[in-house]
Amino acid sequence: MTSEENIQEGLLKKFAFLDGNIKVQRARRIFGIVDHGKFREVFESLIKDFGFTLLCTITGFDEGEVFSLMYHMARPDGIVLSIKTSAPKDKPIFKTVTAYFPDAEIYEREVVGLFGVTVEGLGPGNSYPLPDDWPKGQYPLRKDWKPAPKKGEVKDA
């Protein structure tokens, strides 16, 4: 059994509710989906029990009814596990993971700025990456967001 399959089996043994939601895509690549309510315990276990001690980045998604965050976590042996969790658009609240990874701060600020989700527990600090005078309520990575035409710009016919 490969290391990736061992991780998959270990996760399913510990968290039966992940059944069908952990996929080994290829050597060193695992993808997982976890319910919002169970995210914290799975995330913590990935660090403490499975050795995913590096957070590469966080990817945000606008997926119709929900916003999702995917945490790309790596181990020293090169295995990357990308774990995704979602929150409804009418209550897009995620909890910060800066207690586990202090460097997550900038990645969390990025999804806050670009998707307009809330990350609870994220301390005060500079926004990233949009400018200070960016209009409120405009979140450019949402699927329905289109840049406003520039003054005098002629649209293609």
Partner: peptide, 27 residues
């Protein structure tokens, strides 16, 4: 450098995410 790409079966990606190393190191 970390790139994540999600496709949807068309000729354009559904999502492209980029993490450049400076973002990790500036912290």
């Amino acid at each position: 450098d970390v790139h994540y790409v999600k496709s949807n079966g068309t000729d354009k990606p559904e999502r492209v995410k980029v993490r450049a190393p400076t973002l990790a190191n500036v912290q």
